[in-house]
Structures are given as C-alpha cells and as structure tokens.
Computed example of a mutant assay.
Amino acid sequence: MNRPAAVLITGSSTGIGATYAARFAQRGHDLVLVARDKARLDVLAQQLSEKFDVTVEVLPADLTNQDDLLRVERKLRDDERIGVLINNAGMGQSGSFLDQDAQRIEQMIALNVTSVTRLAAAIAPRLVNNGDGAIVNIGSVVGLAPEFSMSIYGATKSYVQFLSQGLQIELGPRGVYVQAVLPAATRTELWDRAGIDVSRLAEMMDVEELVDAALVGYDRREPITIPPLHVEERWASLQTARQALIGDLKQGQAAARYRQ
C-alpha cells in the first residue's frame, strides 16, 4: 500500500495549524511543520511522531522574511513526498485602518497574501505534473464582510478566497484540488497576538471543531468550506447572483445611468 502524501502546514506550532497537523498525522500522513517557534514545533513533532508513527520534519521559518520564504518554496518545489499544502499562517488586525502603521500593513500583506500566493505557486507545477494533490488556503468570513471594520485583514482574506476560487478553476481540471476554508471567530492565539480582547465576542468556535468541519469539506472536495455558515443555500445564492451580475456586464459601452 502506498503511503499517503506528506503534508506541509504553515503556522503549525499552535491553533488551527497544529490541529491540522494532528488530524493529518492521525490519517497516516507524514508532516512538514513550518512556523517561527522552533521549540514549539519540536515538541509537537515529537508528540505526533510517537503517537501516530509518522515522520515529522520541522522547518522553522518566518514567512515575512524573504530568505525563510525562499527556503520553504524550495522545499515545496523539490520534495516529491509533499502532496498537500495547508496555507494557514496569518496575522490579524487590531484597531481601525487609521490605527495601522506602515510596518504592520507590510507584515500583514506579506504573510496573508504574498506568502500564500508564493507557496501555492511553488508547489502547483509539481502537483499539476503529477495530476494529483491539494492546496488548502485558510481565509476568513471577514473577507465577505467590510461591515466588520477590519479593512486590511478582510481585504487580505478576500484575496485568499478569490485566489483559491481561481486556482480551483485553473488547476482542478488538471487533478489538483484547491479549497478555501472560511472560519469565523475561532479560539486561537491569533487574538492575543493582534491585541484583541476575545471577551468582547459573543461566540467563538473551538479550533478542533473548526478543523474537523473543514476536513469534512476537504473530503467532499468542496471548493469553499464555511464551517460557521448554517444556511448552506446562502452561499449558493451568492454565487448565483455573482454569476448573473457578470452576465449583465456589457463592456462595449457604459450603462445608461452613467451616460448624459
């Protein structure tokens, strides 16, 4: 029996990434764990390898650092064992648009947008050549809701959703599955890092429930999985309305309401 493909998971020292690592290890996948905190990665790697008898490689990296990002890209391009990429690493936004400084804006875009895109681009050619594999990008329902007043973070997550949908259209027919997972508020350390007081939030999903739901969508090969969305038809209606809007575009001339 062939061993399942290895899985590279970014942001895997805690929270969603660490839970994905445990779930894929339980399924018999070898792992490559990527995060900044080597000590935590080492502990998690030892726990998972002993419990599930899988090989767990640790690859410490800060994905906002160009040299580190290049090392992870090389790993994805060159390691034929890796057949699944979980693009989980990300950072949140504390405060309004006016509260952000240039450094934090650059870091958020570098981690939430640039690294996600470059890592997907690094592995995609090899997966297409093999006609198999998967790319999972962790987005957010905030990317659907400018009303939440997290403009930069929401814009980065909207990008992740759009990228994932586009890649599924391009790569899906060539054997590569692409999934975007859109969590709502989930119990992870991201809130503390962003300086957000979680006690203000009325509800929050446990990370295990979030990842288990996301993996149901993964096994069903859903292009978009939204674990907190209880009325599934809302998403289908949104896509139908979006496609109708595209069908109504007439690019040869402006709409009558704009002509005087």
Rank of each mutant, 00 (worst) to 15 (best):
Q103P: 00
V216S: 04
Q161M: 10
T240S: 09
G90S: 04
L63A: 10
Q165S: 10
R200T: 11
L76W: 03
I123E: 05
P146A: 09
R81K: 04
R193L: 03
G252R: 06
D197T: 08
R27V: 03
Q100E: 15
A184R: 09
D42S: 13
V43T: 11
N112Y: 00
D248A: 14
A213S: 15
N137Q: 09
I16N: 03
G172E: 14
V32I: 12
T156M: 05
Q46W: 05
K250L: 06
V211G: 09
A155T: 11
V58L: 09
Q168R: 14
L215G: 10
M204S: 12
A6W: 08
V178R: 07
R257N: 12
D132L: 00
T225E: 15
K51G: 08
A21N: 01
G95M: 04
E203I: 06
G11M: 06
T64Y: 00
A120M: 07
V43G: 09
Y159N: 03
A255C: 05
V231R: 12
L8C: 14
V231G: 04
L210W: 04
Q66A: 15
Q179Y: 13
V181W: 04
R221S: 09
E232L: 12
I16L: 11
F52G: 01
E80N: 10
F148M: 13
I123V: 13
V207W: 07
Q165A: 09
A255W: 10
Q93C: 06
G15T: 01
S13C: 08
L249W: 11
A89V: 01
D37Q: 12
T156F: 02
M91K: 01
S164L: 08
A5K: 06
A180I: 06
V56D: 02
L63Y: 04
L245C: 03
L41H: 07
S151V: 13
M150E: 12
A5W: 00
D67E: 15
A5D: 13
E232G: 09
D67V: 11
G195D: 05
Q46E: 07
D67C: 11
P183C: 04
S115I: 03
R36M: 09
V142H: 02
I135V: 14
R81C: 01
I138S: 02
